[in-house]
Amino acid sequence: MPEPEPLIEARRLVKRFGDFVAVDGIDLRVRPGEFFGFLGPNGAGKSSTMRMIGCVSPPSAGTLRVFGRDPVADGPAIRARLGVCPQRDSLDEELSVRENLTVYARCFGIARREARRRAEELLEFVQLTERARDRVEPLSGGMKRRLAIARALINDPDVLMLDEPTTGLDPQARHLVWERLFQLKQRGVTQVLTTHYMDEAEQLCDRLVVMDRGRIVAEGSPRQLIDEFSTKEVVELRFGNERTDAVAARLGDRLTGCCERQEVLPDRILLYTVDGDATVDAVHQRDATPSSVLVRRSTLEDVFLHLTGRTLVD
């Protein structure tokens, strides 16, 4: 069977703002039904890429096709089939919750009655039916985000674009959003998401790219990325109040044989290993005397920090 036509395809895609290069020649394909993620620190170029795909930011160089069309020439036609949930909710505070959906529906040419029907359905879906007549302003952050997601679904889009959908939400609110996105995925809605939360990418994405400084530094399924850029397990050693660099100096290369790679952080030492228990045994045999030991599976966070470094990017 031939591979289905990609819904989104970019080749050597570049976005410049003056001298600043936000996106530096990326290639990507998003296939129908896929949950695709952009993972990266702030300023990695995720949002710029999303805006180019959303036809609200013309590419500076390279080619971009969405639904096989050119975003610059066919913006309105492409946007008619996209659902966009921007990073800032940008909801209309002068309208009620329901009106935010019905008025937005008119921008897609959805007739009044149909707009109202869809609004009821979507409010139900994001659990805001009780608040339909309320103003937007007093809603909680989680409710606002859910409303923004509902609004992005009003035109029954072929691709749903989510720019950091759970940033700033409390754990309950995050889980509710994830649950809804997962339901949409089960219905076969293609979704493109940006996030800097590893757990989010790990739970939701079929495939993702890690971006750093405008470039794609890794690509694959969460599992593939962990296999490729990290080890199966990680042992975390803590040493009470002792400084970890002093510990590392004291231990010298006593730990080198028992793991594939080690990383010294200010508060703990990480040992990347295939077999966590064996490593812990080895650590005790070599008299490292940690105050606490934790064996855990490797996560995307390990991949992410390995690839993009631990330096803070603002």
Partner: peptide
């Protein structure tokens, strides 16, 4: 303007949608 369930929309309809938003507000 001319609108339908599939959501095809002409220029008049799109301008109208902006107008309608202000009227509702």
């Amino acid at each position: 303007g001319r609108v339908d369930r599939a959501g095809r929309i002409g220029r008049v309809g799109r301008v109208g949608a902006v107008f309608l938003r202000d009227l509702t507000a």
